[in-house]
Structures are given as C-alpha cells and as structure tokens.
Nucleic acid binder design. Structure first.
Length: 883
RNA sequence: UGGCUCGUAGCUCAGGGGGAGAGCACUACCCUGACACGGUAGGGGUCCUGGGUUCAAAUCCCAGCGAGCCAACCA
C-alpha cells in the first residue's frame, strides 16, 4: 500500500504507470469468474493481427472497451474481456517471407513444414509485442484467457465448423472466377479485393466474320484477355445487330472460330453493344459462359503471365501482353479506336497488386442461408447496431451477398481438412483419415490450401470460450454483451461472426450490441498512414503525455458517427487536465493532516452539501452516457465537473474552513467531505484514466484495495440536494457578478473592494448573509454589506441579478465613463437576449397554441430581464450624473 | 450507379423544435500559500443556400451547393 504523502508538483505519468499495471495483474483484478453470482458482462476483443503494432485505431478501440469494462466492474457486473491475436494469414506470411528474403532464401527453399515452423518461431519472438502494447494502454483484459486464432482450441473449433458446414452442403468446392493476387499467389474473397478508380483504356477491336464480309466491333478494357475469348455477346434487342447473317467470328491473333451469342445482360448503351466473352477471366463472362455452354479458356498462369494457350504471347506478363496484343491488332488494322477510360479495378488488400479475375478451383461457403439468419437477428433486435444508421449498410451487404471464397493458396493458416483419394473421393473429416472410406486406399493427399483468416475470426466469440466443448464460460458469458469495432471490418468480421454465431450457438447471437466507433484521422482529416507521414503513434504520445491523457483524449472525441481528427495539441490539452486532477489531489493531501472526524454534530456546510449532490448527479450522468455509448458526453461531463466545479469552486470555497484552526470542528468536517469528494471524483474518472486514479486512490486515506474494485459513487440517500445546488448557484452568481465588475473596470486583482448587495427577498438575504465569508473571500471584498443601508450607493458600479442587485462603490477606483460603457453593454446584451421572447409574446398564435409552461417561461424571462434592465438603467442614470 | 455521413465561433467539434455551447486559439489583468500543464474577466457565430411544415426551425421535410466515406459484375 502507498503511504499518504506529499505529491510532486506535477504529475509524472511514466513513473506511476509502470507500477500499477503490474499490481493489477499480480492481484488478478482482470480475471473473470464464470461461477460468479454477479450478472455477466462480456466483450471479446477484436483480435489485432499478430504482426500488428499498436496504432491509434487500436488505441481508440481498446480504450472504449476498457472504459466499459472498468465501469461495469465498478457497478457490480462480472466482467470478462477476452483478449487475443489473429494469425493474419497473408500478412504474417508476408512478414516472414520478407525476413527470409533478407537471408537470401525463400519459403520454397525451406519447404512447407519448415516454413510454418519458422512462422511459429516468429510468433514466439514478436507475437507478444502488440499484447504488451495493449497492456501499456491499460487494457484490463483477462490475460489468463488470451487466445490465438491458430492455437489448439481454436483450431479445433475451426475444424469442427468446417466439417459441419461441409456435411450440411454449406461448404463446397468448385471452379469459379475468383480474385487472384498474382503477387501473393492466392485467391482472395470479394471483400479482399479493393476497388479503386484507375485510369485505363477502352479499346475497340474488330472481330471479322468468318465469311469474310465485314466485322463486329467489341470494346474492352483488358485486350490481353481476348486470347481466351470463346464468344461475342450482343443484346437480342439491339437493332444494330438485327440482321446479322454470319453467326461466327474469327478471333483475331488466335484464329479461333467463336460464335455470336445473344444475352439480355449486354448493355446496349455501353461501348459498341458487343461484348467479348472471356469466361475464364471475367466474373460476368463466366456467368454468361455457363448459361450458354461456352468453353472456358484460361490463358494466364498464377503469376498472371500468359500461359501456353496464349500462343505467341506465352510467357509474357499480362501488361506486356496487353501492349503486344494492341500493337499486333494495330498492325493488322483491327484496332478501330482507343480512348481513355476510368474504371474501378480490384487491388489486393494486402499488397495492393492489381487483382486478376481467374477461373480456378476453390472452396466456398454458401452464405445465403446464413446471411438470412444474420439479417433477421438484427431486424428483430436481438442484436442492436449502434449508431443505428449502420444497420442499413449491414442489411444491404447481407442482401447482395455472394458465396464466400475461403480457400487461400498460402501456407500460414488453418489447413483445409480435406483429403483426396486416388479413386477420386474427397474426404472431409474431424480426424485425419488413414484410408479412403470408399476404396480403402491409403494413398491420400491432403488439400494444400488453407482457410481465409476471417474464417477463424468469424468464430471468435465462441471459439475463445472453449467451443465446441460446453464450458462454464460459454454458459455464463455467451452471448457477449457488446462488440466494439470500427466500420471498416463490419463486413469482414462482424457480419461473419453473426452468421457463424447464429449457426453454431443454437441460434444465439454472438453479441447483444455492436458499437461502431469512428476512425482516427490526422488533424486535417486524412487517414493516418506511414507513407503520408502523418501518423501519430500512440506509443510515442503515451510516452510524451501519459497514457491517461491519450485515453481521455480519445474518449472525449469519440462522438457517435464522426471521425476523430487527432492532433498532439489536443492530447496536450488533456494532459493538462490530468495534471489538474493531480494537483487537486495534491491540494487535498496537503490539507488532510489532522482530525477528519468532528466530534459531535455539526451542520454540513453549503459547499459540502453542494459538492456531494453534484457528485451524485455526475456519477449518474457519466454512467448513463457510458451505458449508451456516448463516450464523449461521459468524458465531457466528468471533465466539466472536475475542472469547473470541483476545482474552480469547491476547492476554493473550502479553503477558508481548512485554513481556519480556530474552528477545529468545521475544519475536521470539511476535511472529511473533501477526502470523500475526491475519492468519488477519482472513481468517476477511473474508467477513463486508470493509472492516475489508482495512484491517487492508493494514497487517499481510508481506501482499501484497488480503485478497480471500488463502488461507482452513486449518491447516498438524501445526498441529492437541489436546494443546496440552487443556493450555491446564487452564491456563485453573486461572486461572478463582482468579479465581472472588477475585471471590466480594471480593478487590480489584489485590491480588495467593498460591496453592497440589495435584495427584497428575505430568503435571498438569509442565504447570502450565511455565505458572506465565501463571497468576501472569492470576490476579494474588503467589506460586504447586505441590505444594510436600504438604498443603492451613489457612486458605484452595479449589476442586476435575479432578485438582487450588486454594487461595488467606485469612488477613487475608476472613472465613471468606464462604468457607463459597461452598463450600456450589459443593457444591450439583455435587450438582445429578450427580443425573441418579446416577439413571441406578441404573437397570438404562440399564445394560443404553445404549451402553457412555454408561454409562462417566456413571460418570466421577459419580466426578469426587464427587472434587471430597470436596475441597470437606474444605475446608468445615477452614474451619468457624476460624469 | 446506389447508399451513408457531414456543413454551427479563427481551428476542431458537441448539441438539437421554444434561452447559440465546449476545448484550443485570441484580448486584458494576475506567479492570490494545489496547479502558469495555472487563475479571473472578456471579444467572437446570417448555426452552407433556397423552399416547405409549425404558433415557433440552427434543430424536422424537400431541393441545391460543397466535403468525405462505403458498396458495386456495363466490358
């Protein structure tokens, strides 16, 4: 335990942070207990890539999850936050391949087994990096349950799911057009092919009729694929081709005879209305080919070079082949025209290489039936997407979904559990088979493809809890409470978890809520990227400003539906806030020496009643905002209270009592509430700034254990005190009024001034009389008179408040024309303020139709303002007489 | 092509049918015994434009302009 002692003048995060994470871990404070009686609250972390480095997106994502988890722990929930990492198939393979390249070798030199061994070794060495970075961020994950998508348990789940889907006919193998990355040498799913606007050409090529009489012109953006053309398609409605005589064409450069086919798919208003059909290299052409029974001729190899079926172009890269094809067509007079053309072209999401659509044998998941269920679960509210506008995007994607290509031609990943027998049988099995169940042969070869990384991620909410076994964790914590993620993996991940969760957890959704947060961008709104050089590295700014400041900044800007533009300046601003908290605590500690227990009964002071009431409301407000994923409001409410109420007012108000040794009872009572108030404030801030709050909590007298285990400080019976709040408001208004006069009149802050307050309300008089000491001290008064003389002092600056007026005699302090100007300004301001209300009250429609309380409110407003204006007007006239 | 989001103070943004807000920046004064990473006071807005609904619109609806994002199989 820390000793209560003197705090440094400013907060030094590095030193403090180093201590507490270890303390939390050593005391197993993050650990979830599935046998607990408490209600469950669970979150699975979006597993970062094992190759990952903590970036601002992670920092935001995990800060928000941590805020929720810490808040829930303090409000009586059994919290499980499951952490882990993703094996990130292609990304990790690429990293290790680069490592090999540096050693002048390749994975092919190593062979598959050794390469995989090498990746595991890499993982052992570097795989903990991102985990440690999450710990630095303060993430309160249950690390005893850390998972990796390739570990044994998860691999078992993957295999079970694969086999079951296969048995149900929801996984199949087939020849289809897929997105091929010629650099990664693997198929990609539709999602992994990112469309980008690319400048290309649209080439009009003549395909001569077989009979030698004329030609038809096709338009294409990828002329090299013509080597694989097996037809030309036209729209049957197209008048331009109404009287075709010859139905056969000679494919230029190749010499193959190809038919003309008719299909309504062909758009008449694009190009020439004639479409060259290349079933092996274009998804649409593939469909047309199937429909019309066309042959598919694949003319490229896995490197996207023209293969032996491409005749003279064999061996050429696709782009070189394009040039050559065009040149040859040109030479033969078959290239009618070429124009620039902007179109969207798929690029590999990992390496950015242009994707080549290629006909290939792959494994697919039939997603339509799964997507149906996933849609329903959101429609009927079993899973809620927040903010709600993403549901539409989700539905649309589910609606237009195509089968998911899950096989990848890489080595690092879950190897597909399929074996091919020499008899042609395909065996998909939970256990590795030793012989063919059909022919008995032992000559089985295993499928070499692995699964899409997202296949295993899709199982994450239940695979991490031990599925397919029935575990206490699943029973207690599934469905999870909330999934927190950015929208960019809504389809990749969230949608697929929905499908798999519903399918394999007996129709139970994987999570009740999906909270979709913003993207973190740079201060000008650009995506942060290494190449642009605009990255703010969370690790660097955590060093620079402290983790709590970084976390608080992210939470404070995490408004729903808007991206965060982050700059170091903002983080510095919240570093100041953290320091402010530190100093509030420092002040508190400095003043707690001595008795904190008044003997006998002592009436609580107004500021004590006020601060406890405000704390109660703020705790409630912050909690509610966290519950509702309004993190910016939660952080904002805590910030506003801590700085502008607790520090600016409460700490100032109690100084008198703390410093006054003449009244030890009051002093002790004040100390007691101060300690309590700070302890509550620290608890309210804890979800956002875990480190400093733990440090302060441990130093506060009377606290036990970790602040993580402390109760959320909701108000105790009777502490919510609207009367005290109203009275404090009055006192604060009076003080502000005097300060305003002082400031505007240029009265030196060190100069104590006399003040006169006049009021007709005895209630107001009583309150102010009781708080006279506070008013005098905070407004720095030399003398305060309340209703003593009856009339306003003649030579004074005056201010009108609700039900009272304040006068600061000016004799010898300032010139009166300054006061005249100030009064005029005040009057103009009031006038401007109530003009709309006056207009409303003149409007008969308003008087007749607006709710009575609204009308009454407007009337009061005008009356009060007019009252004040009268007072000010009187002041003004009096002042003028002295000028 | 479809969908979504945004346009409020110099900047970054909250808010959202009935009193225009915050942080930063700015101005003035102040190192008042927690904090200059601080204090007190102050200046600053046609809430993008035009219509509509309403007693009342910055807020709801429509259109336009501008910015951004996502999805997508017209070669």
């Amino acid at each position: 335990m820390m000793e209560t002692g003197k705090l440094a003048k400013s907060y030094e995060p590095q030193e403090v942070e180093a201590r507490w994470y270890k303390y939390w871990e050593d005391n197993e404070l993050f650990k979830a207990d599935p046998t607990s009686e408490k209600p469950p609250y669970s979150i699975v972390i979006p597993p970062p890539n094992v190759t990952g480095q903590l970036h601002m997106g992670h920092a935001l994502n995990n800060t928000l999850q941590d805020v929720m988890c810490r808040y829930r722990r303090m409000t009586g929930w059994e919290v499980l936050w499951v952490p882990g990492t993703d094996h990130a198939g292609i990304a990790t393979q690429n990293v290790v391949e680069r490592q090999l390249a540096a050693e002048d070798t390749t994975r092919h030199d190593l062979g598959r087994d050794q390469f995989i061994e090498r990746v595991w070794q890499w993982r052992k060495e570097y795989g903990g990096r991102i985990i440690n970075q999450l710990k630095r961020l303060g993430a309160s994950c249950d690390w005893s349950r850390e998972r990796f998508t390739m570990d044994d348990g998860l691999s078992k789940a993957v295999r079970e799911v694969f086999v079951r889907l296969y048995e149900e006919g929801l996984i199949y193998q087939g020849d289809y057009i897929i997105n091929w990355c010629p650099r990664c040498h693997t198929a990609l799913s539709d999602l992994e092919s990112e469309h980008e606007e690319t400048k290309g050409g649209l080439y009009h090529i003549r395909y001569p009729f077989k009979n030698g009489k004329g030609h038809i012109v096709v338009a294409t953006t990828r002329p090299e694929t013509m080597l694989g053309d097996t037809a030309v398609a036209i729209n049957p409605e197209d008048p331009r081709y109404a009287d075709l005589v010859d139905e056969t064409l000679i494919l230029p450069l190749v010499g193959r005879e190809i038919p003309i086919i008719r299909d309504g798919y062909v758009a008449m208003d694009f190009g020439t209305g004639a479409l060259k059909v290349t079933p092996a290299h274009d998804p649409n052409d593939f469909l047309i080919g199937q429909k019309h029974g066309l042959e598919s001729i694949r003319v490229m190899d896995d490197d996207a070079r023209i293969n032996e079926l491409g005749g003279p172009y064999a061996g050429m890269d696709r782009f070189a082949a394009r040039k050559k094809v065009l040149a040859d067509l040109e030479a033969q007079g078959l290239l009618e025209k070429q124009e620039e053309h902007m179109h969207n072209v798929g690029h590999c999401y990992r390496c950015h290489t242009m994707v080549e659509p290629i006909l290939s044998k792959q494994w697919f998941v039939k997603v339509a039936p799964l997507a149906d269920e996933a849609t329903k679960a959101v429609q009927d509210g079993r899973t809620k997407i927040i903010p709600e506008n993403w549901t539409k995007t989700y539905y649309e994607w589910m609606d237009g979904i195509r089968d998911w290509c899950i096989s990848r031609q890489i080595w690092w990943g879950h190897r597909i559990p399929a074996w091919y027998c020499e008899c042609g049988e395909v065996i998909v099995s939970r256990q590795d088979p030793d012989k063919c169940p059909v022919c008995g042969s032992t000559e089985l070869t295993r499928e070499t493809d692995v699964l899409d990384t997202w296949f295993s991620s899709a199982l994450w909410p239940f695979s991490t809890m031990g599925w397919p076994d029935q575990t206490p964790e699943l029973a207690k914590f599934y469905p999870t409470s909330c999934l927190v993620t950015a929208f960019d993996i809504l389809f990749f991940w969230v949608a697929r978890m929905m499908m798999m969760g519903l399918k394999f957890m007996d129709g139970q959704v994987p999570f009740h809520d999906v909270y979709i947060h913003a993207l973190v961008r740079d201060e000008t709104g650009r995506k942060m990227s290494k190449s642009t050089g605009n990255v703010i590295d969370p690790l660097v700014v955590m060093d620079q400003f402290g983790t709590d400041a970084v976390r608080f900044t992210l939470a404070a800007f995490a408004a729903q539906g808007r991206d965060i533009k982050l700059s170091e300046e903002r983080i510095a601003g919240y570093r100041n806030f953290v320091n402010k908290i530190w100093n509030a605590a420092r002040f508190t500690m400095m003043n707690l020496e001595g008795s904190m227990e008044p003997d006998g009964d002592i009436e609580p002071s107004l500021e004590d009643r006020w601060v406890l009431s405000r704390l109660g409301k703020v705790a409630q407000e912050v909690g509610k905002a966290i519950d509702e994923y309004r993190f910016n409001e939660a952080a904002g409410a805590a910030y506003q209270f801590a700085w502008h109420e607790f520090c600016d007012w409460y700490l100032e108000l109690i100084k008198g009592a703390l410093y006054n040794d003449e009244e030890p009872q009051r002093q002790a009572a004040t100390r007691k509430v101060l300690a309590e108030a700070l302890s509550r404030l620290v608890r309210i801030l804890h979800p956002f700034m875990p480190y400093i709050t733990e440090e302060l909590w441990q130093r506060l007298p009377g606290t036990q254990g970790s602040v993580m285990k402390a109760d959320w400080p909701l108000a105790a019976e009777g502490e919510i005190d609207d009367e005290a709040e109203a009275q404090m408001q009055l006192v604060m208004d009076v003080i502000s009024a005097v300060r305003n006069i002082r400031g505007e009149m240029g009265i030196s802050p060190g100069k104590a001034v006399p003040t006169v307050i006049l009021t007709e309300s005895t209630q107001v008089e009583d309150i102010l009389q009781a708080q006279a000491a506070h008013i005098s001290s905070l407004a720095r008064l030399e003398r305060l008179e309340i209703n003593s003389g009856g009339a306003a002092p003649k030579k004074a600056a005056g201010s009108a408040l609700q039900g009272l007026s304040v006068y600061v005699p000016l004799e010898g302090l300032v010139d009166f024309s300054a006061e005249e100007a100030r009064l005029n300004k005040e009057l103009a301001k009031l006038e401007k303020e109530i003009t709309p209300s006056r207009k409303k009250l003149q409007n008969e429609g308003f008087l007749a139709k607006a709710p009575a309380e609204v009308v009454a409110k407007e009337k009061t407003k005008v009356a009060e303002a007019e009252n004040k204006m009268q007072t000010l007007q009187a002041n003004l006239e009096r002042i003028r007489s002295f000028i």
